[in-house]
Amino acid sequence: MKFTYRLAYYLFGLLLGGMLVVFIFNKRGQDFCYLPNCRALKNIRDKGLVISKEANTAFNATGITQEDVMKSLEYGDIDFSKSNKPQKGGGKLYTIEGRTAGNEPIIIEVTNFDDRAVLVNVKKV
Rank of each mutant, 00 (worst) to 15 (best):
M1D: 05
K2T: 15
Y5G: 05
R6G: 01
L7M: 08
A8E: 08
A8F: 08
Y9L: 06
F12V: 03
G13N: 04
L14R: 00
L14F: 07
L15S: 13
L15V: 14
L16Q: 03
G17L: 06
G18T: 06
M19F: 04
L20Q: 06
L20T: 11
L20C: 07
V21Y: 06
V21L: 10
V22P: 03
F23D: 00
F23C: 03
F23Y: 04
N26V: 10
K27G: 03
R28H: 02
R28P: 00
G29M: 00
Q30L: 00
Q30V: 03
D31T: 03
F32P: 13
C33T: 02
Y34T: 11
L35Q: 13
P36E: 02
N37P: 05
C38Q: 05
C38F: 05
C38N: 01
R39W: 00
R39L: 05
L41S: 01
L41A: 01
K42C: 03
N43H: 11
I44R: 06
I44H: 05
K47M: 11
K47E: 11
G48L: 11
L49N: 01
V50Q: 13
I51M: 12
I51C: 11
S52C: 15
K53S: 15
E54K: 15
A55M: 15
T57S: 12
T57D: 14
A58F: 12
A58K: 15
F59I: 13
N60F: 09
N60C: 10
N60Q: 14
A61G: 07
T62N: 12
I64Y: 00
I64Q: 02
I64P: 01
T65K: 02
Q66T: 09
D68P: 01
V69L: 07
V69I: 14
M70Q: 08
K71T: 12
K71P: 01
L73Q: 06
L73E: 06
Y75M: 09
Y75P: 06
G76I: 04
G76Y: 00
D77C: 07
I78W: 00
D79H: 06
S81N: 05
S81D: 04
S83L: 09
S83A: 08
S83T: 11
S83D: 11
N84S: 10
N84G: 08
N84W: 02
P86M: 07
Q87I: 11
Q87E: 12
Q87D: 10
K88C: 10
G90K: 02
G91K: 11
G91Y: 10
K92V: 12
K92F: 12
L93R: 10
L93V: 10
Y94S: 07
Y94L: 09
Y94M: 11
T95H: 06
E97H: 07
G98Y: 01
R99D: 13
R99C: 07
R99N: 14
R99V: 14
T100G: 11
A101V: 09
A101C: 05
A101Y: 06
G102W: 10
N103A: 14
P105R: 09
I106G: 02
I107C: 12
I108Y: 05
I108A: 08
E109D: 15
E109K: 14
V110L: 11
V110Q: 12
T111K: 04
N112V: 14
F113V: 14
D114V: 14
D114R: 13
V120M: 12
N121R: 15
N121S: 15
V122L: 08
K124F: 12
